[in-house]
Computed example of a mutant assay.
Amino acid sequence: MRRLAVLVSGRGSNLQALLDAIASGALDAQVVGVFSDKLQAPALERVMPALRWSRDARSYVHREEFDAELADAIDAVQPDWVVCAGYLRMLGDAFVARFRGRLLNIHPSLLPAYRGLRTHARAIADGATEHGASVHFVSPELDAGAVVAQARVPVLPGDTPDALAQRVLGIEHPLLVAAVKLAVDGRVKEDGDRVLFDGHPLLRPLRVDSAGLLVP
């Protein structure tokens, strides 16, 4: 059974999706630690106290000090995979290098479009007809790592950023579970700036539907 360390900053709905998939037997893994850059992140309440680690990242003078302490705490639980599930703080180069190849992130856009923040508002402003979410390997450059899988939603006439965000959140959960399952089952691997899927280069990101199934 593969061991997951999960990084969170907010409510933890993506973390809960992973916990539910594990409880149902859909995901053969265990969460061995939940880590946050915010002391009172609501996501922490979704797991027992023994699994929680949190610090106020803003109290550190140097970003590298927080990243090093976080990395040491993660290493202590010996994870096979580190999953950023709504973790809103950039990870430094040294942290990424330490976990490179087993570090995944979910991002609310169809990467490479709309790296960074305010993705829903930017998609609406650009007149995009389609939006969604991506799970990718983390690289030193922001939201630029090789994309494993994506799920899509339409941008509807009259959409607001909040309405679009809710629609995207609905497909984030099955997408994250599907991508983490591929990882723990050994079907995806980072290979430089690309993904290997079942040993072969992935020419385009895998597509996942609203039920968490791969789209042919």
Rank of each mutant, 00 (worst) to 15 (best):
M1L: 12
R2L: 02
R3H: 07
R3M: 03
L4Q: 02
V8F: 09
R11E: 10
R11C: 02
G12D: 04
N14A: 05
N14S: 11
A26D: 12
A29F: 01
A29H: 06
Q30V: 07
V31I: 12
V31F: 04
V32S: 07
F35L: 05
S36C: 08
S36H: 05
L39E: 11
Q40W: 09
A43Y: 05
E45T: 07
E45V: 06
P49F: 07
L51K: 10
R52D: 02
R55T: 07
D56R: 12
H62I: 05
R63Q: 15
E64H: 07
E69H: 15
E69S: 13
D72G: 10
A73E: 04
D75H: 09
A76R: 14
P79E: 04
W81Y: 13
V82A: 00
C84V: 00
M90E: 10
D93E: 15
A94S: 15
V96E: 08
F99S: 04
R100Y: 02
N105E: 00
H107T: 00
P108V: 00
P112E: 11
P112C: 08
A113Y: 08
Y114K: 08
L117F: 14
L117T: 15
L117E: 08
L117D: 10
R118N: 15
T119W: 01
R122D: 13
R122I: 12
A123V: 12
A123S: 09
I124G: 00
I124V: 08
A125L: 15
D126E: 13
D126I: 15
G127R: 07
G127I: 13
A128I: 05
A128R: 03
A128H: 02
H131V: 00
A133M: 14
S134Q: 11
V138I: 13
L142H: 11
D143K: 04
A144L: 01
A146H: 03
V147A: 06
V148M: 01
Q150M: 12
A151Q: 02
V153M: 08
P154R: 05
P157T: 08
A163I: 00
L164N: 03
L164H: 04
Q166I: 00
L169R: 06
P174K: 14
P174F: 06
L176E: 05
L176D: 07
K181R: 15
V184M: 12
G186Q: 13
R187L: 14
D191N: 14
D191F: 14
G192P: 11
G192E: 11
G192Q: 09
V195A: 03
F197N: 01
D198H: 12
L202K: 02
R204M: 03
R204K: 13
R207A: 09
R207V: 11
D209F: 04
G212H: 07
L213S: 14
L214H: 11
L214E: 09
V215I: 15
P216A: 11
